[in-house]
C-alpha cells in the first residue's frame, strides 16, 4: 500500500511538473509526500467553514476534522467564517499560505456558480485553487405540496418557484429550469431561509421549490411534499426512486446544458486549499483524506448521522472544476442571469 502511495506520489510529481499545474512553488520547493507529512505532524490545521455553525457544512466539517487530524497526526480545528454566501471566506483562504495548514470546505455549486457568473466580490480563480477531494454529493430535488395538482414536470408551466434570493442554489435551479424547459415562470424571492420557502410551498402559497435532497427528505417523509424532478445525479435514495431526471426531461438540443448543470449540482461539498500547494503536501493531504473517506466505520457512522458521504478524488474534482469553468457561453450567460436577479 505504501509503495503504491509512493508510486502515485511520484507519478503526480512528474505529472505536476510536466503540466505545470502546481505553478509557482512546485518546481523548487517540492517535497516528497513523506517529508510533507512529517512537516504537518503535531501542527494545527484550520478547516475553514464559510457558513454558520450548525448547518450541513459545519456538521460535515466537524465530522471529518478529527479523523483527518488522526490520519495526519495533526490537530484539525474547525473555524466558521460566514459571510457573502461563502465568497468572503474563500477570498481570504486563497491568500493563505498553501502549506497545508489552511483548508476550506466549499459549497461546490455556490463556489463554482459565483465564479462562472463572475459575480461581485469574487476575487479568486476557481480553477487555480487546490482541491483535496469531495466529501459529499447529492442532487437537488424539485418538490411541490402534496395537495397540489402538479404530478409531473409537464404540469409546472406557469407555476411559481420559491427561492431565498438571486445567487442561491434554489434560485439558480429555477432560472435553469425556466430556460431549459422553455418556460417563463415567476420566482418569488425574499424568504428569510430555505426552510421558510419550503413552509410556504407546504401551505400552498407558492408551488415549486428546489433544494438539496437532504433538505427535502424530512418534508417528503412527513408526507407534506412530493418530489417532481431530480436535478443532478440520482443517488438512488428511496425518496427519489423513480423520479424523473432533468437530463431526461429536456429536449435534445438542451441535453448538453442539462448535463453541465448536473455536473455543477453534483460538485457537492468540496475540501480545498489555497492555490499553489506543492505536490508533496498535496499528495500527503489527499492520501489522508482518501483514507478517512474510504474507512468503512467512518462511512457507516456518517450514514447513521444522516450525513452520507460521497468520495471523489482531488484529481477528479479538479477535472470537474475545469469542465464547469470551461462551460459554453450559453451556460455562462444563464448562470450570470441567475446571479443578477
Amino acid at each position: 500500500m505504501r509503495k503504491l502511495a509512493f508510486g502515485l506520489a511520484a507519478l503526480t510529481l512528474v505529472g505536476g511538473a510536466l503540466t505545470g499545474c502546481s505553478s509557482t512553488s512546485a518546481a523548487g520547493a517540492s517535497t516528497s509526500p513523506q517529508e510533507a507529512a512529517a512537516k504537518l505532524k503535531n501542527q494545527t490545521i484550520t478547516l475553514v467553514v464559510p457558513f454558520d455553525p450548525g448547518g450541513g457544512y459545519d456538521a460535515y466539517a466537524r465530522m471529518v476534522a478529527p479523523k483527518l487530524g488522526d490520519e495526519l497526526g495533526a490537530t484539525v480545528i474547525v473555524e466558521n467564517r460566514p459571510g457573502a454566501g461563502g465568497i468572503l471566506a474563500t477570498n481570504e483562504v486563497v491568500h493563505a499560505k498553501p502549506d497545508g495548514k489552511t483548508l476550506v470546505l466549499l459549497n461546490g455549486p455556490g463556489h463554482l456558480g459565483a465564479a462562472i457568473a463572475k459575480t461581485n466580490g469574487v476575487l479568486y480563480d476557481a480553477k487555480k485553487m487546490t482541491y483535496i477531494g469531495q466529501i459529499s454529493s447529492e442532487p437537488d430535488v424539485l418538490v411541490t405540496s402534496k395537495s397540489s395538482a402538479i404530478t409531473s414536470v409537464d404540469d409546472i408551466r406557469g407555476k411559481r418557484f420559491a427561492a431565498t434570493g438571486p445567487g442561491s442554489n434554489e434560485y439558480i435551479d429555477a432560472v435553469v429550469l425556466n430556460q431549459q424547459l422553455g418556460m417563463n415562470n415567476q420566482v418569488v424571492t425574499g424568504f428569510k431561509s430555505s426552510n421558510e420557502a419550503s413552509l410556504n410551498v407546504i401551505q400552498g402559497n407558492v408551488d415549486l421549490h428546489s433544494r438539496s435532497l437532504g433538505s427535502q427528505q424530512p418534508g417528503i417523509n412527513a408526507g407534506d411534499l412530493k418530489p417532481i424532478l431530480v436535478i443532478g445525479e440520482n443517488t438512488g435514495e428511496k425518496e427519489i426512486n423513480g423520479v424523473q431526471n432533468l437530463v431526461d426531461a429536456v429536449k435534445d438540443d438542451q441535453k448538453e446544458l442539462a448535463t453541465l448543470h448536473t455536473k455543477l449540482i453534483s460538485s457537492g461539498r468540496l475540501l480545498a486549499a489555497p492555490p499553489g500547494m506543492d505536490t508533496g503536501t498535496l499528495q500527503a493531504i489527499r492520501e489522508a483524506f482518501k483514507k478517512v473517506m474510504t474507512d468503512e466505520a467512518f462511512v457507516k457512522a456518517a450514514t447513521d448521522a444522516k450525513r452520507p458521504v460521497h468520495y471523489t478524488s482531488g484529481d477528479d474534482v479538479q477535472k470537474l472544476v475545469n469542465d464547469v469553468m470551461g462551460s459554453p457561453q450559453e451556460y455562462v450567460d444563464l448562470i450570470t442571469k441567475a446571479y443578477a436577479g
Binding site: 455553525p53 450548525g54 431561509s193 426552510n195 419550503s198 413552509l199 407546504i202 418534508g219 412527513a222
Partner: peptide, 12 residues
C-alpha cells in the same frame, strides 16, 4: 410541526 426553525439555535 413542520421542521421550520425560527432561528439559528432551533436550526441546530
Amino acid at each position: 410541526a413542520f421542521g421550520v426553525p425560527s432561528g439559528a439555535s432551533m436550526a441546530v
